[in-house]
């Protein structure tokens, strides 16, 4: 127990002193926060970050939902393979994956060659928000698939068969029965991916362009280049509060905090 307290200190003291710093330098004031909303840059970047995060989340949901559903439907051996496919990138190097995306998306890289082959020679995704979105969705997709899978796995498919037996079409059966039952997993996955994309640093820094920077790059710039520790702390606290509010809000729908535990353990559980 004191062990836990000790390590919480390493985590909480810096965060708490950020909060204090953002409020108290140079004197006790809310100026640092007021600046964020009036300097014109921060709000633009926050808006761009939120938009990117929304698109990433939508892409992850569109790809992750059928994949998680497929996981619940296939035989045990295929399921083990499909799960390893999700989990290996989940646990292997973030740098390796971002480097790979950089190579794939760069000018003259395979993706732009493919577009050129299709008659669109000027498509270069590296340095654009679309490139960042494609790479981020791939990096974050496991965080969508794992909670969805744990939620979809608990749905009794015989309900669907019953609905079909009573004469409903497959689409109606899905919409009226399966989708509402899966909502807990959807909320968990959506919130998880959205909050993680809000704070994503490496992918936008490597693949995006400085003109299209996201909030994480802004935080880095304020801290290491402008040495505006108070401003950076204030911005960090804003991002943290938004994240925690979203998590708390999702918690009322179906336990995101426990879903995060599920993500971590299912990584661990299947490998154990």
């Amino acid at each position: 127990m004191p062990a836990l307290a000790l390590l919480s200190v390493i985590l909480l003291v810096p965060l708490f002193s950020s909060l204090v710093r953002s409020l108290s330098s140079p004197t006790w004031t809310l100026d640092n926060y007021a600046h964020l909303f009036t300097d014109g840059v921060t709000l633009t970047v926050l808006g761009r970050t939120a938009t990117t995060a929304l698109i990433v989340t939508a892409v992850a949901l569109l790809l992750g939902y059928p994949y998680a559903y497929l996981l619940t439907r296939v035989g045990p051996r295929a399921r083990a393979v499909l799960l390893v496919v999700v989990l290996v990138p989940f646990w292997t190097s973030v740098m390796a994956r971002n480097f790979a995306w950089l190579v794939l998306l760069q000018r003259g890289g395979p993706v732009s060659e493919a577009f050129a082959f299709l008659g669109m020679p000027d498509v270069v995704l590296s340095g654009t928000t679309s490139g960042v979105t494609i790479a981020m969705s791939q990096v974050l997709l496991p965080f969508m698939v794992l909670p969805l899978y744990s939620s979809l796995g608990g749905i009794d498919r015989r309900l669907l068969l019953a609905a079909r037996g009573l004469g409903s079409s497959p689409i109606v059966a899905f919409w009226k029965i399966y989708w509402p039952l899966s909502r807990g997993g959807v909320v968990a996955g959506v919130i998880l991916v959205f909050t993680l994309s809000l704070g994503f640093y490496v992918t936008p820094a490597l693949i995006g362009s400085p003109q299209q920077s996201l909030v994480a790059q802004l935080l880095n710039q304020r801290t290491t280049q402008l040495l505006d520790f108070a401003g950076a702390s204030a911005l960090g606290i804003v991002v943290l509060v938004v994240t925690l509010l979203l998590v708390a809000w999702a918690n009322r729908f179906g336990g995101t905090i426990s879903a995060i535990g599920v993500v971590a353990t299912s990584g661990e559980g299947t490998k154990r």
Partner: peptide, 25 residues
């Protein structure tokens, strides 16, 4: 409370933690 705290530490954006830890360190 302790368990919630630890789970919160898992969702805190890495960049926010990094900036806070960097300044404290």
């Amino acid at each position: 409370a302790m368990r919630t705290l630890l789970m919160i530490s898992m969702v805190t954006p890495a960049i926010v933690l990094a900036v806070a830890v960097y300044i404290s360190f």
